[in-house]
Design a protein around this nucleic acid. Structure first.
Length: 424
RNA sequence: GGAGAGGUGGCAGAGUGGUCGAAUGCAGUAGUCUUGAAAACUACCGUGCCGCAAGGUACCGUGGGUUCGAAUCCCACCCUCUCCGCCA
């Protein structure tokens, strides 16, 4: 959520920043301010009446204990009670509406976020490595590689579930497991992350906390009448671990990682240019979550991105970093880098990680605070990034390391994890 | 799933209709004392909202209700614990 005080003090700037996103969320600002005005004046009025009531009620107590007749005061207080009820009702209404609106307004893109209306305006920040050369043969895509080697099976996935689900088989399953192990070890041993293994079913409150609700209910798998949801990313359970807490700043930065299954309906994505493992209803992902002090968040975003990049560097996979422009940054994000790995068989870059700083946007939603040196509580900043998504990493890996005979020569970092250096 | 018990401040734990935002202990912060530390002593020590401030107001699992007045009484829900059943 945006800070209502910020909206109050700089409504035009808020509107301008929201306009930079495109969409019409900026139009809500005016109504939010109206609600805020109503809410505050109602609250003040109510408090004056409550003060009267409290004072008179105490008097009744005294009078009764002294055996005096208090019926006159009682009826007076009863009248005040009625008034309070009326005012409270309209105040609560304004407050509820204000909250509803605030929850719908996305975060403000950071001032240094490149301006643009859609993904075509996303600048490339840097690249690492180069596209692999294939001597004497044409690179094929992961589907044909997997077909020969028996790494995974879409028909089986569709049979027991539906399209958009896959069954990894044999060495293919082992490779997936090896990758997960490699990723978690890298982040916990070299980047200082604390590992958790959270539920993949979460309640509505958690979904509100990170910003999936109220806007994206239809993108998620709901259960129990949508009182719970399958997580679309470990960002949700992991960040919400810290919901409603007051952190000790000595613990910053708090770095937590988890591998989970992720579930996405991908409504409307069917039939689009997504063959194979590129876009699934269920996939695995290693997520990196940071909780930091406000002053640290920009630097921390660079560090977080570097941690995700380390994955691809260690595996020797060519990638590029792009920054999302104002028209493309996610709902809760204020600044985002995407990491796109080169997949030779696709002949394109695949997004394997999205590293974002959310500023205090999520923290305010979930009341995640820290005790400042001034003794007061302040909202933390939250960040997260994939470190990385598995299927696309898998695709890039096997397509990059394919050999002329259709086998796959694994990079050294995976040998021990996989238990071998070649998949045949 | 069935039966019972319980949810109060960072923790422990009083409080069963009025002066209770809440005793007490521990932890924490500041100070006195001390060469230093410990101990002892003193003071402070929950969160939100409104307000320039003084101050006010709300919060005792959550949401309703009763009452002039609710941490305290009533109802519903959630969660935890114990026992039974089931079970990876």
């Amino acid at each position: 959520m945006l800070d209502i005080r910020l909206i109050r003090e700089e409504p035009e700037r808020c509107q301008d920043r929201l306009k930079a996103r495109g969409g019409d969320a900026w139009k809500l600002i005016t109504e939010v301010l109206e609600c805020d005005e109503q809410r505050r004046s109602g609250e003040t009025e109510k408090q004056v009446l409550q003060q009267d009531r409290n004072r008179l009620s105490k008097e009744i107590g005294k009078m009764r204990s002294q055996g005096e007749d208090s019926s006159e005061v009682e009826s007076k207080v009863r009248g005040i009670g009625e008034q309070i009820k009326v005012i409270a009702e309209s105040t609560e209404k304004a407050e509820a509406r204000q909250r509803e609106l605030l929850l719908q307004i996305p975060n403000l893109p950071h001032e240094n976020c490149p301006v643009g209306s859609d993904e075509t305006a996303n600048p490339e920040i840097r690249t690492w490595g180069g596209k692999p050369k294939f001597e004497g043969f044409e690179a094929v895509d992961h589907l044909s590689l997997a077909g020969k080697l028996g790494l995974f099976d879409f028909e089986l996935g569709a049979k027991i579930s539906s399209s958009g689900f896959v069954v990894y088989t044999g060495k293919g399953a082992r490779l997936q497991r090896a990758l997960i192990q490699f990723l978690l070890d890298l982040h916990t041993r070299e980047h200082g992350y604390q590992e958790v293994n959270p539920p993949v079913v979460v309640n509505r409150e958690s979904m509100f906390g990170t910003g999936q609700l109220p806007k994206f209910e239809d993108d998620m798998y709901g259960i129990e009448g949508n009182q719970q949801f399958l997580i679309p990313t470990a960002e949700v359970p992991v960040t919400n671990l810290y919901r409603d807490t007051i952190q000790n700043p000595d613990d910053f930065p708090i770095k937590t990682t988890a591998v989970t299954h992720c579930f996405r309906r991908e409504a409307g994505a069917a039939g689009r240019e997504n063959r194979g493992l590129i876009r699934m209803h269920q996939f695995d992902k290693v997520e990196l979550v940071n909780v930091v002090e406000p002053g640290q968040s920009l630097d921390q975003l660079e560090l977080l991105t570097a941690e995700a990049e380390k994955v691809l560097q260690t595996l020797g996979l060519h990638y590029r970093i792009i920054e999302l422009c104002t028209g493309d940054v996610g709902f809760s994000s204020t600044k985002t880098y995407d990491i796109e790995v080169w997949a030779p068989g696709q002949n394109e870059y695949l997004e394997v990680s999205s590293c974002s700083s959310f500023g205090d946007y999520q923290a305010r939603r979930m009341k995640l605070r820290y005790k400042g040196e001034d003794g007061k509580n302040h909202f933390c900043h939250t960040l997260n990034g994939s470190g990385t998504a598995l299927p696309r990493l898998y695709v890039a890996l096997i397509e990059t390391y394919q050999q002329a005979d259709g086998s796959i020569l694994l990079p050294e970092a995976l040998h021990a994890y996989f238990g071998g250096e070649k998949i045949t």
